[in-house]
């Protein structure tokens, strides 16, 4: 995977290894994983359960540090092994967006507030945050449900709001962990296409962990993980 010559890679993982436990209970969840993504790239990460996909995603998402290896995001080194080189929470706030299998919307906030809160956390003024949140909801086609609580939204609508929230702070990297698992194939594909649209139009790099092989044509690249190791996949014919 190559980076644009004028911009540093959106994310670069170098030799990431994650080991849980020790001695007899030691489990190597991720072994010497290296990957580099440019801004605007959409990458799928495939693999069976327990292959280490979520471990990789949470390591790159700065919520589960690797045992060893180095993570560089937007040209800035952020993790060296288990050692944080930056304020991780502040870094996540400013540079990362997350989407999960469940939308994980905050139940006491309506759709627009769920998006705006991500910006307010990042010190955007409430009025500006709300305005931008409305724009994002409009961009993702759920503006008419802006004032509905999550309970009143369908699964697809919730996931769109979650994507809007992930985009709120214009992150350089969006991490999505099986975002279509709870959706039917039609809506699942819509969400995948949404990631592609977001990546190409907004310049964020997107890593999507998925089991859904039907939408692989949406991605620029596809990787497979097995036994903690990452390898390029030939599923879409675009493998590196």
């Amino acid at each position: 995977m190559t980076a644009n010559a004028n911009h540093p890679p959106a994310v670069e993982a170098i030799g990431l290894t994650k080991i849980y436990g020790s001695g007899n209970t030691e489990v190597v969840a991720m072994k010497d994983v290296s990957v580099k993504l440019s801004r605007g790239e959409v990458v799928a990460l495939l693999g069976p359960s327990g292959a280490g996909k979520s471990t990789f995603l949470t390591a790159v998402g700065l919520i589960n540090p690797p045992t060893s290896g180095r993570i560089v995001i937007g040209g800035e080194a952020v993790m060296e092994g288990e050692r944080a080189l930056v304020d991780l929470r502040a870094f996540r706030r400013q540079h990362l967006g997350f989407v999960f299998q469940k939308a994980n919307l905050i139940p006491f906030l309506n759709a627009v507030e769920n998006v705006a809160v991500a910006m307010e956390i990042n010190d955007v003024a409430p009025r500006a945050a709300r305005q931008r949140a409305m724009e994002l909801l409009d961009y993702l086609g759920v503006a008419e449900r802006a004032n509905n609580l999550p309970d009143a939204l369908s699964g697809g609508q919730q996931q769109r709001v979650a994507v809007a929230r992930a985009l709120a702070n214009q992150p350089s990297l969006i991490l999505a962990d099986e975002p279509t698992a709870a959706l039917d194939s039609h809506r699942g594909r819509q969400v995948m296409e949404l990631f592609r649209k977001v990546a190409h139009e907004r310049g964020s790099a997107v890593i999507v962990v998925t089991h859904d092989h039907r939408s692989l044509d949406v991605f620029d690249r596809t990787y497979e993980m097995e036994d903690g190791k990452l390898r390029a996949s030939l599923h879409d014919g675009h493998a590196v």
Partner: peptide
């Protein structure tokens, strides 16, 4: 707890 975890994930202070 889940919402708090989400807020922390989003980087809430």
């Amino acid at each position: 707890i889940h919402d708090i975890a989400m807020l922390k994930l989003m980087g809430a202070r």
